[in-house]
Design a protein around this nucleic acid. Structure first.
Lengths: 176, 176
DNA sequence: TGATATTAGGATAATTTTATCCTTTTATCC
DNA sequence: GGATAAAAGGATAAAATTATCCTAATATCA
């Protein structure tokens, strides 16, 4: 669902956030995050263009965060690299439009909106916290809308999957 | 984010739900939904294998819903075709594991969990409602967790996009 | 039984996303 | 200035997703 590129951006940013201001080269970040170095470099370029990281060429150069991790939202990172595709109008612009698939697309957009909101309220600092403070707190409802992560953690760990679904040809996705 | 295949499955299911029990051929559904006929056929096969629709060959055959639309959740449809990829363990199984990227992956999984929950509580009947009952209700918080859609509708229509993001090479996605 | 409609399934092609490689630019150090 | 380090950018390759096409299986109808 979230693209690989998005994962890479987030992982790199976390790694960067943890290195305490010291510049990291693309190669270092790739090693630390176990991501393909070449591609990661492209992703870092995107982040640089978006003004989230600053890059410096030459000896001793590399990448640093352009702002404190607490002031960078996960949403910024994601959108810099592979934006959440909000749906503003039904893909099916036709007679059916008004009466048509609108509930469907409203729902889909709603899902995107949820993700946006969730990511908007999560900072890179939140994502970079060390030590997994595993909670038993129920994930729902989301309680009061304050800032910082490690607040909501889902309750179950089961793989609820509807009906007899499971196989299915055109579906496949094998990403890590 | 949601794959094209997922959209197709949902659109086809809505179309099917609206045809009131009469079998629809893949070609008919493709025409009604404006989707590529050949590929849609594959998607329908997946839905059939998942037990969501029933298929019948030969003259007068086609596809029908296996159950009333009210008893089919959006989640089932999505999972039949391109499952929501819940994250159960950090991709980076390494020394860094515990101390590492876990907050990140917890957050990502949380986002997936939200989508799952949202889709689980939306039925195909909800998605198939005609006439767009546009609400002004704020999208957040999600209020009480009862069933049925057309409940949450997002408040804004603005394209909030972090910082100066926008361009960016490795990112592209041009889907409809 | 034969003709026709329609799904099932496999092979293959087109497109998009990810990944690699190479050259160029810019910086540091000597 | 020359050597070296590192990002920038472009061309290309590999992999995954989406799409098309063809044949086979199965059903209906005459």
């Amino acid at each position: 669902m979230l693209s690989r590129t998005t994962e890479y951006a987030l992982r790199a940013a976390v790694s960067l956030a943890r290195s305490g201001g010291a510049p990291c080269t693309a190669a270092e970040l790739a090693a630390a995050t176990r991501l393909p170095a070449g591609y990661l470099a492209k992703v870092l370029q995107s982040l640089a263009r978006a003004g989230i990281v600053r890059s410096q060429r030459g000896l001793g150069g590399g990448f640093v965060l352009a702002r404190p991790a607490a002031e960078i939202s996960a949403l910024e990172l994601v959108n810099a690299v592979d934006p959440i595709p909000r749906i503003r109008s039904c893909p099916l612009e036709l007679p059916e439009h008004r009466s048509g698939l609108c509930q469907l697309h409203r729902k889909l957009d709603e899902a995107y909106a949820q993700i946006e909101a969730s990511f908007r309220h999560t900072s890179l600092a939140d994502l970079s916290q060390r030590g997994g403070g595993r909670r038993a707190t129920p994930a729902w409802p989301p309680a009061a809308p304050s800032r910082s992560a490690t607040k909501k953690v889902r309750k179950d760990g089961k793989g609820v999957r509807g009906a007899g679904a499971g196989r299915g040809k055109p579906a496949s996705r094998k990403r890590t």
